[in-house]
């Protein structure tokens, strides 16, 4: 043998120590890596889930805000509609009152006669026909006859044309209306409605903006009034 037993033993001890050292280093390396991976993994998991949770709750909070806005919007809408409906109702109320008061106009014979004269002439001008038929309430025939007689010369002078007028004594306007006349051309296809009711309806329709301003004041949101 090249080495003595003692030398061999020493060599073996050395080798064993080396093996142990290697193992310890390896183990330490693994432990360190484990700790590192632990932190990385934990951090990754926490971050991932945390983001999910944040997203979830942010979404829910947005939903609540949205819901709140929608509810508020609905409330405002309902309130606004309530106000608008109230105004509309008041205007309807006003127009109904106006219709009721129309009935008083015909009760004053002088006023009504003047009115009928105007209505008849207006009807003539609107049609500009050489032959016209007038319809009126049965009770108004005499007054309308007077109005017609008075207006034929006026019409002729203004239009430079003849006019032949017939009061329809077979068909009358309803006794329920407040007064006025309807004027037709010869074949009855064209009508100029000059009843008090139709005049009121036209006026109300055309003047609705003015009525609103008169009743409720100018609209602060409106910038142009032409």
């Amino acid at each position: 043998m090249a080495l003595s037993d003692a030398a061999v033993q020493k060599q073996i001890k050395h080798m064993m120590a080396f093996i142990d050292q290697e193992a310890s280093e390896k183990a330490e390396e693994i432990d360190a890596k484990a700790e590192e991976e632990f932190n990385i993994e934990k951090g990754r998991l926490v971050q991932t889930q945390r983001l999910k949770i944040m997203e979830y709750y942010e979404k829910k909070e947005k939903q609540i805000e949205q819901q709140k806005k929608i509810q508020m919007s609905n409330l405002m809408n309902q309130a606004r509609l309530k106000v608008l409906k109230a105004r509309d109702d008041m205007i309807k109320d006003l127009l109904n009152d106006a219709r009721e008061r129309l009935a008083t106009i015909a009760k004053d014979p002088n006023q009504y006669q003047t009115l009928l004269e105007g209505l008849v002439l207006q009807g003539f001008y609107q049609l500009l026909e050489s032959r016209v038929i007038i319809r009126c309430r049965k009770e108004d025939v005499a007054m309308v006859q007077t109005a017609v007689q008075k207006n034929i010369p006026i019409y002729k002078e203004a239009v430079k044309s003849n006019i032949e007028v017939r009061i329809d004594e077979n068909t009358f306007l309803s006794p329920d209306i407040s007064g006025g006349v309807e004027v037709y051309n010869a074949d009855g296809r064209i009508k100029a409605s000059n009843t008090l009711e139709s005049r009121l309806d036209l006026l109300a329709q055309q003047m609705m903006p003015d009525i609103r301003v008169s009743l409720f004041g100018a609209n602060p949101n409106r910038k142009f009034t032409d």
């Binding site: 106006a98 008061r101 129309l102 106009i105 009115l115 105007g118 001008y125 500009l128 005049r199 009743l215």
Partner: peptide
């Protein structure tokens, strides 16, 4: 304002100025 508006409306119903077109 109701009474004023009402009066105005009725006044205009009765206020006829016949004119040729």
């Amino acid at each position: 304002n109701k009474e004023a508006v009402l009066g105005n409306l009725l006044k205009m119903v009765c206020d006829i100025k016949p004119e040729i077109h």
